[in-house]
Computed example of a mutant assay.
Amino acid sequence: MKIIALPNALGAEVVGLDLTREIPEADFQMLYQAYLDHLLLLVRGQKIGDDDLLRLASRFGELMLPPAAHERSGHQVSDAPPAITVVSNVKVNGLPIGELGDGEVVWHSDYSFKEVVGGMRVLHGVKIPPAEAGGTTWFANMYAAFDTLPPDLRQVALQRAIRHDTAYDTNRNLRMGAKPGESSGPVHPIVNTHSETGANSLFLGRRLAHAIDGLPAGESDRLLDAMWQHATQDRFTYEHHWRQGDVVLWDNRCTLHRRGPFDARQERILHAAQVKGDRPLRAPDAHSRPPHPRARAVVEAQPA
C-alpha cells in the first residue's frame, strides 16, 4: 500500500489497497494517519458492496445513521442497509431510490446541525455517468481557510459561534416537518480545534439560514458572507472527477464539499456511510496554534 499526495490543497491517493478484504492493522494505522494528514483519501477501481463499505467505515469509528432514514419509506425506495445513504437521481416506479437528485448541491459539511457532528464520510461510486455529464465533487481545506483569514475575520472567528439551522437540507429545501425560522439547531464555535490533530479549522456548516450567535442579522450576514467567500476560494480546493468504483473518504470536521449538477438523462448512483465525529470545540489557546501541515504550503504562499 502506498499513499501519494495529490497536488492540491488536500487529498492523497491510496494505491495497492483492496477494500473487499480486511485491512491488516498495520496498514489501517497507516491509512488512518494519512486521513488525518491529508483530510481526504481516494481509492480507485474498487468492486465492493455495501457490507465492504460499512466494514471500512466502522474501522474509523461508530457508524452514524442518516438523519433522513425515518423519511425513506415515505418518498424513497431502496434495499440498501439503514446505515447507507443512497445519493442518486434514479427513480423506480416514479419514486427516487436516493436523495439529492441531479441538481447542484451547495457547499456544506455533513450533520453540522447536530450537537455531535459527522466525522469520517465515505462515498462509493456505484454507477458513474461519463465525465462530460458533469457531477464532479469539490472539497475544501478548512485548516487552510482559517490560517489565511484576514485579521478582522480571524478575530471574529476566534470569538464567535454560529447557530446552525436544522430546517433546510443541502438542496436548500425544507426538511420534512420543518418550518422556516423555527430552527432549534446547536451553537458551534466558528473555529474548531481538531480533537486529533490539534490544529484549527473553520467550521461553517452551511450558509442558508445560519447566523452568528448574538449579532444583529445584518452584521451576521455580512460577516458570514465574507467568511464563505474566503473559505471557498479555488486555492483551498480539490475537484474530484468520478470514475466507476472510486471510493473517496474525508474528514468532515475540517472540510467542506459540494457537487456540481449533472445531465438528468444520465443515471448516477453513489453509496455513502458516515462515522460519528465529536462536538466542535475551540481550544483556549486556539489563537496561537500552528497550521496543520497540509495547510502550511497554502499559508506560506499567501502574500504578506
Rank of each mutant, 00 (worst) to 15 (best):
L54N: 02
P24Q: 02
P24K: 05
E25V: 15
D52S: 10
D50I: 03
E22C: 13
Y35V: 04
I23P: 08
H38D: 01
R21G: 06
R59V: 10
L39G: 01
T20A: 07
R44F: 09
L36V: 06
L40C: 07
R21M: 15
V43L: 01
L41A: 03
D37M: 04
L53M: 01
Q46D: 01
A34M: 08
E25C: 12
Y32S: 11
T20D: 02
Q29M: 14
Q33T: 13
I23W: 05
L31C: 04
Q46C: 04
K47L: 13
L53R: 04
Q46P: 04
F28I: 03
L54T: 03
L41T: 00
D51F: 10
G45Q: 14
R55S: 10
Y35Q: 08
R44E: 05
H38Y: 15
Y35A: 06
A57D: 00
Q33I: 08
Y32A: 09
R21C: 13
Q29E: 15
I48Y: 04
A34R: 05
L40F: 10
A57N: 02
L56K: 01
A57S: 13
D37Y: 07
V43G: 03
L36T: 08
L40Q: 02
L36R: 11
F28R: 04
I23Y: 10
G45C: 10
M30I: 12
D37H: 05
Y32M: 10
D50S: 11
R55E: 03
D27V: 11
M30L: 15
L36M: 10
R44N: 04
G45M: 09
G49W: 07
G49Q: 01
S58I: 07
K47M: 13
L54S: 02
E25I: 13
R59S: 10
M30G: 05
L39F: 12
D27L: 08
L54H: 03
R44H: 12
Q46N: 01
H38E: 03
L54K: 03
Q46W: 05
G45F: 08
D52H: 12
M30C: 12
I23L: 09
G45D: 15
Y32C: 05
G49C: 01
D51T: 14
I48L: 02
D37Q: 08
S58Q: 14
R55K: 10
V43R: 00
Q29P: 12
R21A: 15
R55V: 02
V43I: 15
P24S: 06
L40Y: 03
R21P: 00
K47I: 13
L31E: 07
A34E: 05
R21Y: 13
R55I: 01
L42M: 13
L42S: 11
H38C: 04
R44V: 08
A26C: 09
T20R: 11
T20F: 03
R59L: 13
Q46A: 03
T20G: 08
